[in-house]
Design a protein around this nucleic acid. Structure first.
Lengths: 238, 238
DNA sequence: CGAATAGGTTGTTCTAGCACAAACTTAACC
DNA sequence: GGTTAAGTTTGTGCTAGAACAACCTATTCG
């Protein structure tokens, strides 16, 4: 027993991979977990590092990032609270395929990787639920490929913003405000473009009343119009 | 019992997900399998269709394709003999996320999707091995994203050709000949460019002795030079 | 509080690679 | 075996969006 107080079961009992588990199982899982805080900007794990742990994000936002040999960064995805991360270790990998960086202050739980097999074997819903997650991430990745290969920058940025607004925003009087700091540069790294182009797009959209944006802040004020931009097919003439 | 002769165990006993299994298990698995032939161009399964079966490709080559609303096609990957396909059904999906098309004449085995859980539960190495495959596909997809987001068309085409040559080629006097029909259009759909650009690149490379190409045929004659093109960082000045 | 820094905007230039067109070549098929 | 179709090559615009530069504005921190 460490000096940490025992973790509350309600912390994770509603989260998909654990939702179907018995109270006792949840207890066991929590007892095996180590909680840890990360402050904004800190790396949680790094690409290529041996994958010794898998994590559950309880609070905060995490960016999953890959870096090319040439130094370009690409943001693969964002993790919001309640999601597992670093689980690629559970897919036959021995190293992390990407780095995870805390965007704001984060609270995570982690377990040693060797417990993964115990979890999937012992707790029944766990395996199915997590593989569903994995399946969803494959689809996500493939959609991203499709977008990068076929769509214009404008559409890609529109889609990225839509996804963020849906996945992780709070609703204010203005509209849907993405609830973590997000720069033009960040958006460009999500969509394979430059920060300049993103800046111009946001300026234009602001004039059309689709978004409001400021320093590290983006608010979607008209989701309908944004969706039109996202779905717009540049080839199809009306 | 169907009129089909019993399938030979050697057919699959060396293939990764089955490699670690006992002879009896392999027998059982084969007895549950249905063999089927597809001729060049035929669809094996279609995107959005309910995923009622999962397949093992025994012979031939398969293209995994997605189509956008706008009608653009993107080739997600190629399946070569010995690989499983349509297993997304096993990742919590109920429909196929992409279409699979036979490139040449193919021989496959398939099982009803509901047997997946039996397989992963009953046959020990099976689960780990297939999830390793899944892990590899996620990595692949993420690499593809990285390439599309950061690299020039020339590099992407070079990389695609390298991968194909390594994954599926026969060695002739000329070099490594990709052992299935492959058009400029196909290459462009793998790399997010146009058939015109691919044609120009291949012409240029042919002059430099890197490849030889013809109708639906590509031979890599100088893998070393191709790798240099693939790794070339356009930003880094020497 | 004032400098330093991180983030944002906007103008200008330039080019990779797309679009379209037209002609050519190889394979397929009545 | 000649016609049709599928695949390829090459030329000529043309433009989306990258690159670079210069300047502006909000934060942070000593």
């Amino acid at each position: 027993m460490s000096s940490l107080r025992s973790l509350d079961e309600n912390l994770i009992s509603h989260i998909p991979p654990f939702r179907k588990l018995e109270r006792v199982d949840v207890r066991e899982i929590l007892d095996a977990a180590t909680p840890k805080r990360f402050s904004a900007g800190q790396a949680i794990f790094e690409e290529h590092e041996p994958a010794e742990r898998f994590y559950l994000l309880l609070d905060g936002h995490v960016r999953v990032v890959r870096t090319t040999a040439g130094g370009d960064q690409v943001i693969a995805r964002h993790i919001v609270s309640g999601e597992l991360m670093g689980i690629a270790s559970a897919l036959g990998r021995t190293t992390y395929p990407a780095s995870a960086v805390a965007i704001d202050d984060c609270l995570v739980l982690f377990w040693p990787t060797n417990l993964w097999d115990t979890f999937t074997g012992k707790y029944d819903g766990f395996a199915t639920e997590t593989y569903k997650t994995v399946g969803a991430r494959i689809s996500e990745a493939n959609n991203h490929i499709l977008e990068l290969a076929t769509q214009q920058v404008e559409q890609r940025v529109a889609r990225a913003l839509m996804r963020l607004a849906i996945q992780s925003s709070r609703t204010t009087e203005e509209g849907m405000e993405i609830d973590f700091p997000l720069t033009r540069q960040n958006i460009s790294e999500m969509t394979g473009t430059t920060l300049y182009t993103v800046s111009r797009l946001l300026s234009a959209w602001e004039k059309q009343g689709i978004v409001t944006s400021g320093r590290k802040k983006v608010v979607v004020t008209d989701m309908g119009k944004l969706k039109i931009l996202a779905d717009l097919d540049p080839l199809a003439e009306s």
